[in-house]
């Protein structure tokens, strides 16, 4: 049976929501699941991790050196900890992507990036070419499989368990070549289009630059970034850098709201990884409805303000 080590991620002292999705991937592999948490004091996060369904053990690796998530510092400790595990899984976040290869290289293992599906303990689907081609890969089982998990492909496990929490320490030599200076939250008023969890986009149906106000207003209410279709950009309603689609930005938010966007293929190519798509369009035949999770045939000039009011 597989013995799976999940490297948890902590944000603001709490367990990052991605960890529950990595546990879901571990559950798909099937095996004994341990979550390891690194930090100066991870007790709060450990308590959350212990509740995740399927987790049998939570390991706390606490030290002053672990206060900030430095790949160069965590990696030697993870390598040491990995002995005896068949799999080491990381979240497909900036933290996981930074750290996992450092562990894999030290173990002499070719990493699997962005697992979407685990067919077996050694066979996985992963995206290539920006998600335009999915490859099924077979990874050598020995010495271990190191992988990152594509969070958008998994649904978080529940939290009704009660796993044991243990402390572990590491004797690995830690480098001094990397020093944390600071972490600044993004200052911009609106989230960045490419990084945002929620995006509201407007299309040519808005008819003018001025009319885009209702899109901005809804976005602000939702804490969302604002995007636009190429038609809206070409019509000069909004600047180029707001264009979502194949020749503009490719985004993968949790929630995408398309208002007055017909859904030309260029646009759809840019949002195919969005978790949930909401489409509001007057034209019931608009192609956007073919891919939308929720579709509303309505005039956006009434529906968008109404939606804003009711959120």
């Amino acid at each position: 049976m597989s013995k799976i080590l999940v490297i948890g991620e902590i944000s603001d002292g709490k367990l990052n929501s991605g960890t529950a999705k990595v546990v879901a991937a571990a559950a798909q592999i099937k095996g004994d699941i341990t979550v390891a948490l690194f930090g100066a004091d991870v007790s709060a996060a450990a308590a959350d991790a212990a509740k995740l369904d399927g987790v049998t053990k939570v390991l706390k690796i606490e030290s002053a050196a672990n206060a900030n998530p430095l790949a160069a510092v965590y990696a030697p400790q993870i390598v040491e900890l990995a002995a005896g595990y068949s799999h080491v899984l990381f979240p497909g976040t900036a933290f996981g992507k930074d750290t996992a290869p450092r562990v894999a290289a030290r173990l002499g293992v070719q990493q699997v990036s962005d697992i979407m599906v685990a067919h077996s303990p050694t066979s996985f689907d992963r995206p290539t070419y920006a998600g335009n081609a999915i490859v099924t890969v077979e990874a050598p089982a020995a010495p271990a499989i190191v992988a990152t998990v594509r969070l958008a492909s998994f649904t978080a496990v529940g939290s009704s368990a009660n796993a044991a929490i243990e402390s572990a320490s590491s004797s690995a030599a830690l480098p001094s070549h990397t020093r944390f200076v600071k972490l600044e939250a993004q200052k911009s008023e609106r989230p960045d289009l490419q990084a945002a969890a929620r995006v509201v986009s407007g299309g040519r149906a808005l008819g003018s630059s001025d009319a885009f106000k209702i899109i901005y207003s809804l976005a602000d209410k939702m804490g969302a970034a604002v995007g636009a279709s190429r038609a809206a950009v070409d019509s000069g309603y909004v600047p180029n850098d707001m264009q979502v689609g194949q020749t503009g930005k490719i985004i993968a938010p949790e929630l995408y709201v398309a208002a007055g966007i017909s859904g030309a293929i260029q646009h759809l190519a840019g949002i195919k990884d969005a978790r949930t798509i909401v489409a509001i369009n007057k034209d019931a035949e608009a192609p956007i409805f073919e891919v939308a999770d929720f579709g509303l045939v309505a005039d956006l000039f009434t529906a968008v303000p109404e939606l804003e009011g009711k959120l």
Partner: peptide, 15 residues
């Protein structure tokens, strides 16, 4: 037409 043009892989610098 647009899904066809998409397959021409045409692109121009927007600005």
């Amino acid at each position: 037409k647009l899904s066809s043009v998409f397959l021409s892989s045409t692109n121009h610098e927007e600005d």
